[in-house]
Amino acid sequence: MKMTKKQYQQYAESKADKSKLWLDMFNAFWIGGLICMIGQFFLNTYMNLNFDKEIAGTLTSITLVFASALLTGLNVYDNIAKKAGAGTLVPITGFANAVVSPAMEFKNEGYVMGVAANIFKIAGPVITYGIIASVLSGIIYLFL
């Protein structure tokens, strides 16, 4: 095979099957949209129960996180995600799945070094960068 590395990479890329972008986007759109709609339902419900807006928002998050943890625990979240892609990754349910799934997976390594040490294996970066960004945001806000 007479090819440079670069030529080979381009050649392999050109022969590879491509993702069906429009179909994937469509699935992500309607499943992700549906999850947000369910969120809106809980938000409205909690507000109708006379919780103030912020508390209702927090309760909505907790409810969705619980639903995602339940579906992950019942071994079905990943089956939905296979089809939904970003539709189940981007909503807060995806964050919850990223916390719950390693916790379950590393049970065999024990509850301290397994479950607890791995619980933020995937979602840890989200918290880390989220907090760092919020600190920068606070600094900017403080001095402006």
Partner: peptide, 19 residues
């Protein structure tokens, strides 16, 4: 509104996954 805006945010994520 929740469906459409949430859906769009997810669809953008799908572009990042696929592309």
């Amino acid at each position: 509104k929740a469906f459409v805006v949430g859906g769009i945010l997810c669809a953008i994520g799908q572009i990042l996954i696929d592309k």
